[in-house]
Each structure stands twice: as C-alpha cells, then as structure tokens.
Amino acid sequence: MVKLIGCFLLCVVATRGVAIEISYAQLAMLQNEGEASLQMSALNHEVTDIWHQHLRLHRLAKSEVVSVNEQTWVSSLLSTEAILSVPNPDHPNQQLVVVDIAKQASAVKILWEMKSMAEDIERQWQYGSLDWKNVVLHQDKSRAMRWWLTTISTARAEQVAEHAIQQGIEYVSVNNAMLSALIQQSRSPVLMQYLWANTPDAFTYQVLQQVPNQLNEADAIEQLIVASRNQPLASQAIMLLAKHYSHNQKAQMFLQSALNDPQLQWLTAAAVGMLKDSQP
C-alpha cells in the first residue's frame, strides 16, 4: 500500500514537473554528454529526466511516423511544469528558461497536426480537389499549406501558384501570409502584383526584401518600381533599387523621376545621396 501511494505521488510529481535552475556548467554537461553517460552523471535525476524528455521531444518533432504511445506521452506533458532555467546573466534574481517541456510538447503536437494537414493538402493537390477557400480561411490549414509549400519543388510551386491564380485568387489575393508563401516558392510575378497592392504587413516587407535575391535584374527592377507606388513600401523599394541597381539605366531613370516626386523626394534623396555615407 505504501509502495502504491509512493508510486502515485511520484507519478504526480513526474506529470506536474518542477522548475529547476541549473548552472551554465551543468547545462554544458547536459549538452556535451551522451544520453547513456547522463544516467551516471552527478546531476540531479530530476534534471536529467527533464533533459531526456527534452531530447526525446526534439527527436519526435522530426519523426515521420509516430506511435500512439508516443502521442499519448507527448499529450501527458502538455501541463507539466518541468522547466530548466539558467541564471539570467543580466539580473541577480531572474532566470532564463532554456527548456520548457510543456511548451516543447505543445510545439511537437502543433507540428504533427500541421504535417498531417499538409499530407491532406498533398492528397487534395494530387487528386485535383484543392479548395483554396477552405485552406485560406482556416488558420491551421493555412499554416499547413504554407509549410507544405516549403517542402515541394519550385516547379510544383509554380503549378500551385498558377492554380491559386485560376481557382482561388479571390481568397489568396487578400491574404498576405498566403501570398508571401506562394511567392517565396514560385516567384510568381502575378501574385507579387497582388501583394504590392495590398495594405502591407510584416509578410509584405519580408517578401519585398528578398526580391533582389529571387528575381533576375530586369524583373526585380520592374517589381520594385511597382511596389514603390504603395506608399508604405516606397522607401524599401527605392532603397533596394539604389542599393542593388544604381548601375541600371531603368533604375536610374526611375530614381531620377522619384527625386522630382514630392511624395518620394526625401526617401530617394536619402537612399541615393546618403548611401555613400552609411557604414554597413
């Protein structure tokens, strides 16, 4: 009976977990020693238990096939308070969390679900039943689609982009996240035009920044000039033109005209005139 109660308490503790502060030296020991030797180390067993959970979760996040037991185990960790932290180097009484098992378990579950949805998307694509409305309007499916796009070839991505233009532009064109994902994989100039015309957000700026790396010179200049017509994008587009294509006649002509445009004047002057003063 006593043993049973003890086991029960131990299980509860294991499920609830504990927050433990370790030193940087102990963390280095965890990172450097193999799993087997950790069993023998002088570290507190609760610390090594959490580290083992951390390593296992790390492996499971990458797994292509997951057993029911593994799924159950990950689910059991979602509410654990098992945390490893190190002293925050900045402040005497603060810690910096380096391992948070519940958050890691949650991330693993999200990644599994995302991959599962991506497999559905792959099937729908293969069977020609991809429904853009369903994908774009469903947050998790949208995320899965964006992830799926990173796993396919450029040629396939171009086909998917064309499909989006033909079958789902009504939904795709107003969703900067989806447009960005499609553009990054397909480099579709048509979808870029939609993105530059939308109200910019964090996705837009990131895509625009990649234009010089993703397109040939002529196409990039064309896209940057179009983007510059959207006021919040103007500075970035002009600076990229000045930075990468100041040797190009078309870019030069555009920059010259921008210098005479009251809306773009100071942005252009700063980008062109002061570029030589800056110290990257």
Partner: peptide, 25 residues
C-alpha cells in the same frame, strides 16, 4: 524576421544601414 532596407518605420526590423540613413535624414 530578416532585416529590411526601409528608412520609414515598418512592421519589422530595419537593417543598420537603413536605420543609420533614417537617423541622418
């Protein structure tokens, strides 16, 4: 996030070069 070459403030981080030009401007 990757840093962005924009003098004007954006929803994102700017490159040092862009920040410096903005300060100069």
């Amino acid at each position: 996030p990757i840093p962005v070459d924009s003098l004007t403030p954006i929803d994102g981080f700017r490159t040092y070069q862009a920040l410096h030009l903005r300060h100069l401007q």
